[in-house]
Design a protein around this nucleic acid. Structure first.
Length: 104
DNA sequence: ACGGTGACGCTCA
DNA sequence: TTGAGCGCCACCG
């Protein structure tokens, strides 16, 4: 369906299951635009589908929570509630990272 | 149409 | 390992 880059980001983000997280980088790769990691953050920042799109489940590729419109602290708190254990503001990607199916 | 900004990523020192 | 710089793409004014 014709939609903007951001729209696809929201769609993928909404597919992230509870207790799991994804990275800006992973989303960009899924959209076939590996270098659009920054644009991902930009899209989620505006995120018009707030409760519908769990943008707090999207973190940086290095495991850091990254940023959040309501505050990084809030983001971490939400993730912890979801069952994600965070250490030093970092998340275990090997344990919680959710990988999307990369279309080819 | 143009330029600046931004919830990032990677390389180099 | 930590810190700083450059490059990336999409959106807003």
């Amino acid at each position: 369906m014709k939609s903007t880059f951001s729209q696809r980001v929201y769609d993928l983000t909404a597919k992230i299951p509870v207790g799991r997280v994804s990275t800006y980088r992973a989303l960009a790769r899924t959209l076939k635009i590996p270098g659009a990691s920054r644009a991902i953050g930009n899209a989620l920042h505006k995120n018009p589908y707030a409760p519908q799109v769990p943008c707090h489940r999207v973190i940086k590729s290095n495991g850091e929570v990254g940023g959040f419109a309501s505050g990084t602290k809030k983001k971490i708190a939400l993730l912890k509630k979801e069952g994600v254990i965070i250490r030093q503001g970092k998340i275990d990607l090997a344990t919680y990272l959710y990988e999307f199916k990369i279309k080819k």
